[in-house]
C-alpha cells in the first residue's frame, strides 16, 4: 500500500527526469508542477476540469492536472508542454495561427500530441471528441483543427 500522511518529499517522473517535490497529500498535480517544480506551462483555467488549460500527459494519456492528486501521479510518466521540443504539433500551431493569447495552448498541444501519438488516422468524430475537452476563447477552433489535421495527415512532420 502506498500511503502519504503528511508533507512529504516525493519523486515524480516528469519529462523523462526524476524530480523531487515537497507535497501535501492533498496537493493537486497542477500546483505541484507549477509551484513545486516551476513548470508553469500547464495553466490554471478553472480548477474544475472544465477548460483543459492544465492538461498534461500521464503515461501518454491526457489528464487535467487540476483534478489529479500529485500522490496519484507518483510512479507514472508525466509529460508537460516543457517536455515537447520542436514537435510537429508545435510547428503546426505556429504556422497555422492556432493560438492568439496562448493561454490555452499548452493544454491543446498536449491533447493533440497524445492523439497523434495514439492514432494514425482518427476519424473526424474522434478528433472532435478529444479536442472538445478544451476551451479556447480567442480562436474559432478552426485553426486548431487545421493544425492537428496537418500533423495527422503528415503535411507537417
Amino acid at each position: 500500500m502506498y500511503t502519504l500522511k503528511e508533507k512529504t518529499v516525493v519523486t515524480l517522473r516528469v519529462n523523462g527526469e526524476d524530480r523531487q517535490a515537497l507535497i501535501r497529500p492533498g496537493d493537486i498535480l497542477l500546483d505541484t508542477l507549477r509551484d513545486g517544480l516551476g513548470l508553469t506551462g500547464a495553466k490554471p483555467g478553472c480548477l474544475n476540469g472544465d477548460c483543459g488549460a492544465c492538461t498534461v500527459l500521464v503515461d501518454g494519456t491526457p489528464i487535467k492536472s487540476c483534478l489529479m492528486l500529485t500522490a496519484e501521479a507518483v510512479g507514472h510518466e508525466i509529460t508537460t508542454v516543457e517536455g515537447l521540443s520542436d514537435t510537429p504539433i508545435q510547428r503546426a500551431f505556429i504556422e497555422l495561427f492556432a493560438f492568439q493569447c496562448g493561454y490555452c495552448t499548452s493544454g491543446f498541444l498536449m491533447v493533440c500530441h497524445a492523439l497523434a501519438g495514439q492514432m494514425q488516422t482518427p476519424p473526424d468524430a474522434v478528433i472532435d471528441e478529444w479536442l472538445e475537452s478544451n476551451i479556447c476563447r480567442c480562436t474559432s477552433y478552426e485553426e486548431i483543427g487545421k493544425a492537428v489535421r496537418a500533423v495527422l495527415n503528415g503535411e507537417i512532420k
Binding site: G38, Q90, G102
Partner: peptide
Amino acid sequence: SKVTGEAKYTADFL
C-alpha cells in the same frame, strides 16, 4: 514562447 510553455503570464511569476 507560446508553444513551449515559456511565455509567462502574471500568475506564472513565482
